[in-house]
């Protein structure tokens, strides 16, 4: 429930457009997380996610008046800008191979909380890594719906509002994306199970 001291996104935006720096700071702190996570989950690159986050809010500063509240919440608007920017950047950078992939992987995985059992921790990290790579290997339309509906945990309607398509499209894309993810992760599972079998045989031998 919103109180008097908790202005809405629209009010913050209006104040920001009027030149209120505090409003921009408040809006940024409120919405930067989802924008940054979306860009990070879409690209897997913290550097790209930082750039996109900054560009999204720069765009908001520049064209804040173009936001129409009748078309959806401000968060949709921001994620829509982020989506376009990520697509542009990925399209531009698809021909380049980053030398810092391992470093980025470490930076993403570093967010894991340490648990009691190191083996559980290792297994969990591996699982997350497998899923993450499978998500990154999806075509962009499928990756978008997985990120929005599964990782950002938005509803079909919200995802449809952000992507600018029908709810049925989101649903069908998500079903297809999940099927692809299951297929992509299955070889890894089978490989793991085969390795386990070999280990077991060796032990028995």
């Amino acid at each position: 429930m919103r109180t008097q001291s908790d202005p809405s996104d629209g009010e913050l935006l209006q104040s920001m457009v009027a030149g209120d720096e505090e409003a921009l700071a408040a809006l940024y702190r409120k919405r930067q997380g989802s924008v940054y996570r979306f860009a990070l989950q879409m690209s897997g690159s913290p550097a790209l996610a930082e750039d996109v986050t900054q560009e999204v809010f720069m765009a908001l500063m520049r064209d804040g008046t173009s936001y129409d509240s009748a078309r959806g919440p401000l968060n949709w608007f921001l994620l829509g800008i982020a989506r376009n920017l990520v697509r542009q950047r990925l399209g531009r950078e698809r021909f380049y191979t980053s030398l810092a992939d391992d470093q980025e992987d470490q930076s993403i995985v570093s967010g894991l909380q340490t648990v009691n059992d190191p083996l559980d921790e290792l297994a969990r990290t591996e699982t997350i890594e497998v899923v993450r790579k499978a998500v990154f290997s999806l075509p962009l339309p499928y990756r978008e719906v997985v990120v929005l509906c599964e990782l950002q945990e938005l509803s079909y309607a919200e995802a449809a509002g952000i992507l600018g398509c029908a709810i049925g499209t989101v649903r069908s894309r998500l079903h297809r994306a999940r099927a692809l993810l299951i297929e992509k992760m299955r070889p890894a599972q089978e490989e793991n199970s085969t390795a386990d079998g070999v280990k077991a045989a060796r032990c028995f031998a």
């Binding site: 996570r37 989950q41 894991l112 990782l151 993810l181």
Partner: peptide, 17 residues
């Protein structure tokens, strides 16, 4: 798959710029 995706989502919940 849902379980794994939820783990990934939980792991990145605290990610911020």
């Amino acid at each position: 798959l849902s379980e794994r995706l939820r783990k990934v989502a939980d792991q990145m919940t605290s990610s911020r710029a």
